[in-house]
Amino acid sequence: MEPALRMADSPSEVPEGELSALIRAAGEGDERAWARLVDLYARRVFALARSRRLSAEMAEEITQSVFATIATKLTGGDYTEQGRFESWLFRVAMNRIRDEMRRRKRQATPTDPGSFALDAAPEADTSLAGAEEFDRLRAAMDELSDADREIVELRHHAQLSFKQIAGLLEEPMGTLLARHHRALKKLRDIIGRLDAGKGGDEDERKADAS
């Protein structure tokens, strides 16, 4: 991982006390505190939305909406800081994403298979190997149950700790860890199956050619 990315992405760079002070200041309308909160979390919310293969525009719209909600509640005194800000923010984000996915399902009709198609995700990693790896991962994640997928996304896209995810999903830590491991195993198996299928197709093509 590039050091620069780690600096921008790692939530651990904000100590708990500093985060609480930021949240208080933001609640009082401090512009710089808001700018810092947005810098810390906007991309993580965006990535969470993108993990469902939503377009960049829709992911940005969801990100905007999440922060508008957070701002309204923080400045309106509806939030009391108890060290659960990140869990709260990403719960709001998950609700927005679930709403959007439900809306898409409602609009899709069986006679219009094209309406199921989601937007292609962009490739930040432009190497062919990286792009292929990401395509396989996305395809495998599509086969996970929603519950398993959410854990994987909250962990790897939103960068939440297991403790935060457990709080957000209201599950015991042991259950959550077991589910995360099970989801990883499923992904590994699905990718193995996809690779085997791809290999089989290539063998068939070679056999046809010969």
């Binding site: 991982m1 921008a8 906007a42 993108r50 940005e60 930040a124 990693d125 990286g130 896209h157 992904l187």
Partner: peptide
């Protein structure tokens, strides 16, 4: 998955924040 997460965060359009 960690690499995919990094890529998705890095794919945010310029000026998002």
């Amino acid at each position: 998955l960690d690499r995919l997460g990094v890529a998705e965060r890095a794919s945010a359009p310029r000026g998002l924040e």
